[in-house]
Amino acid sequence: MALHHTINYLELPARELEATKAFFQAVFGWGFVDYGPDYSCFTQAGIDGGFFRSSVNFDTLNGCPLLVLYSNDLNASLEAVKGHGGEISKDIFSFPGGRRFHFRCPSQNEYAVWSE
């Protein structure tokens, strides 16, 4: 049962839908359920959502929200992102409460990964 007035689902654009799915599966272990050629629901991501084929991308330079993932091992996550074709846009840095890095997926969307 969904909780009233909570964030329940997240839909993200993906220029390179197949490459984006392969990247998130390989790096973060997400699963996918396809609904036609232009939409794929992601699973095991901490929130329900999906990627839709789109010619746009999102990043904080354009005022878009930043999706931040959590990692138990920030260095291993950084290496996995790089090893599977992600582009590091901000290397690991400290902030109040932890450390994080920013990256771009194959669709050029910006994400971050943090750890205590």
Rank of each mutant, 00 (worst) to 15 (best):
G49W: 02
S77D: 08
A2P: 07
N57S: 15
S40E: 03
S89H: 04
R99Q: 12
G98T: 02
L66V: 07
F32T: 07
N57T: 14
P106W: 15
I47K: 12
K90V: 09
F51Q: 10
L3A: 11
F24N: 02
T60E: 14
C41H: 08
H5D: 14
S107D: 02
I7V: 14
I92H: 13
F95I: 01
K21S: 03
S55F: 05
P37L: 12
D34A: 15
P37E: 11
V68P: 06
P65T: 12
S54P: 01
V68N: 15
F23G: 14
E16N: 14
P13F: 03
Y39E: 04
V81R: 00
F101P: 01
N62P: 05
P96Q: 02
A19W: 00
F58M: 10
G85F: 10
P13I: 11
S55Q: 12
D91Y: 02
Q108T: 06
G85C: 04
F42E: 09
L61G: 12
C64R: 00
T6I: 04
N109H: 03
F52Q: 04
V113F: 09
Y9C: 10
E79S: 11
L74R: 13
Y70D: 05
Y111H: 13
V81E: 00
A80P: 05
N62V: 06
G49D: 05
K21I: 07
G83Y: 13
S71D: 02
F58N: 02
F58G: 02
N62R: 14
A45C: 09
M1F: 11
D73A: 15
T6E: 10
I92Q: 08
Y35R: 10
K21N: 02
L17H: 03
S94N: 13
G46E: 01
E79P: 07
A112H: 03
R53H: 08
E11A: 10
L69M: 14
L67V: 15
F52R: 09
G98M: 10
P13Q: 08
L61K: 12
F95Y: 15
L17Y: 09
L74N: 10
G97H: 03
Q25Y: 03
F24S: 04
G29I: 11
G86M: 00
S55C: 03
C105A: 13
F93G: 05
N109M: 08
Y39C: 03
N8L: 13
G49S: 03
F32S: 11
S115M: 03
T60Q: 15
A19Q: 14
G31I: 02
P37A: 10
V68Q: 08
Q25V: 09
C64M: 04
P37C: 09
T20L: 08
F23D: 13
H84E: 00
H5F: 06
A19L: 15
F32K: 07
A76F: 05
G46I: 04
S77P: 07
A76C: 03
A26M: 05
N72L: 07
Y35V: 06
F32P: 00
T20E: 00
A2H: 08
E116K: 01
S55H: 11
A22T: 02
E87D: 12
C64W: 03
Q108A: 06
A80N: 04
K90F: 07
F52C: 03
W114N: 01
T60M: 05
F93K: 01
T20G: 01
H102N: 07
Y9N: 15
G63T: 10
T43K: 15
I7H: 09
